[in-house]
Amino acid sequence: MQQRPPLVRARPAACLAALAACVLMAAAPPAQAQNLEVAVKATYLYKFAPFVEWPPSAFETEVTPLSICIQGEDPFGPVLDRAVAGQRVGPRAVVVRRMARVERNAGCHILYAGGSRAQSAGDALRAVRGAGVLTVTDSGHETGAHGIIQFRIKDGRVRFDIDDAAAAEDHLTISSKLLSLALSVRTRR
């Protein structure tokens, strides 16, 4: 028999997701809400991975780590590092790399385009277009660029739009489960 998991009793080490939930229901102070929003987004970054299928060429081996690249301005900071610590996507470990500019062959699998003076978010996206990289942007940051996935706040919750057409161009397959959670989907032709 499988051990019965606790139903009501919450673990003392409440995770970020739980914190995020609290944020959504309570009228928290803006700064704290800001932090929670960042934390949720950081978690989402690696959580997208299981719902996305990369082309085989994207990984050298079976165990090649999944690279999450943060280009330009980094809104996450150590929150992201803590979130991905010890996380695995299947057999793969998850690594976070930060860079001012992103190159086409930088080996990124997920790219958060924050944009910087050295390389705007739009440039960053253009740099990796067609290279099989899941690009993520945030509508909250006025970069004007739209990645395959774009974070959006709705009803005080972190949601996202998905550009499945762009994903197709990048040879990425996004699970319908993820698509069904999106606020809007630009379908592939």
Binding site: M1, Q2, Q3, R4, P5, L7, K47, A49, P50, F51, R88, V89, G90, P91, S175, K177
Partner: peptide
């Protein structure tokens, strides 16, 4: 009868259902 099943996506565990 009690059943617990993991929630996975691909090979990644996301939680479980009871």
């Amino acid at each position: 009868l009690e059943i617990t099943r993991p929630v996975t996506q691909g090979q990644t565990g996301l939680g479980r259902v009871y």
